[in-house]
């Protein structure tokens, strides 16, 4: 407990130093506020326009969470199919890498053209961003089960459902979490990227990405900074929530999760 407190304290100190350096640079080099606003101005505008900021953040959160959840469900299903046979893997696995290598920026306008701007298209973009690492990691987990364990199950006349439910799935859980952890940050990036293209169906009411565009056009640099920082905080929150669930589910038995808890 004391250790964790120290950790939080350390992070807070680093943050304070960074803000101080930011403030000093703006001051010393006389950077105009429409280029880099001083920290206090960003904080002030964040408070003043909080309802607006919060609304944007909620929309982006909804899209990112939706995309992440969809990618977990679909990703695990695809991984289950991939784990069935090496032949299927060899044939289709290269296409999951395609998911990562095709510049999603190039697809985003297409998706918006196809299904129209708004929540569902942005969620779909976040989903596509997340999918590859979920598939890759879960497949790895499903197929890396010790062959002796499979034979043990067969020796005791286990059904295929038992081998899946009691062996392959639990074994692949730590792998799935590696995928989710990577995807949790990517989901936020995906949602904001999507918003940059899709914007909003309602004027003045959009996610963080939309608001960033809007603030940029209006040269509201301080609010732009507040939005970027809010989006970063969102990514952080996602990441730590995933870490928490990972710890909750795995700390009893899995080495990596157990190490995190310091036992």
């Amino acid at each position: 407990m004391k250790q964790r407190l120290m950790l939080v304290l350390n992070a807070a100190i680093v943050f304070a130093v960074l803000v101080l350096v930011w403030w000093a640079i703006v001051r010393v080099f006389k950077v105009p506020p429409y280029m880099v606003p001083p920290p206090m101005q960003v904080a002030k505008i964040a408070v003043a326009r909080f309802p607006e900021l919060w609304a944007s953040l909620l929309i982006t959160t909804e899209e990112a969470v939706g995309g992440l959840f969809a990618s977990i469900v679909i990703g695990v299903l695809v991984a289950l199919i991939f784990a069935r046979s090496p032949w299927i893997r060899r044939t289709f696995f290269p296409y999951t890498i395609l998911l990562q290598t095709v510049p999603i920026m190039a697809i985003a306008p297409l998706i918006i053209m196809w299904i129209g701007p708004g929540l569902s298209s942005v969620t779909l973009i976040a989903f596509i961003f997340c999918l590859a690492s979920i598939i890759a990691n879960t497949t790895q987990g499903l197929i890396s089960v010790d062959e002796n364990l499979v034979q043990l199950f067969l020796m005791h006349n286990a059904s295929q459902a038992q081998i899946l439910g009691r062996l392959r799935l639990p074994h692949s859980l730590p792998y799935l979490f590696v995928g989710i952890r990577i995807s949790s940050g990517i989901a936020v990036i995906g949602a904001i990227t999507g918003e940059l293209f899709a914007g909003s169906s309602q004027v003045g009411q959009g996610g963080v990405g939309y608001s960033i565009l809007y603030a940029m056009a209006q040269l509201q640099t301080a609010y732009l900074f507040a939005l970027v920082m809010a989006a970063t905080a969102l990514g952080f929150t996602f990441f730590f929530l995933v870490m928490f669930f990972e710890w909750l589910l795995l700390h009893n038995w899995h080495e990596s999760a157990a190490r995190q808890s310091g036992s």
């Binding site: 002796n148 006349n157 074994h171 038995w253 899995h254």
Partner: peptide, 23 residues
């Protein structure tokens, strides 16, 4: 087997009862 081949997510007692559960 040569390795203990236990299921790491199960407690000792749950590992022992695995075969009974499967059958």
């Amino acid at each position: 087997f040569q390795d203990a081949t236990l299921l790491p997510w199960r407690t000792v007692e749950k590992n022992v009862s695995l075969a009974l559960e499967l059958e």
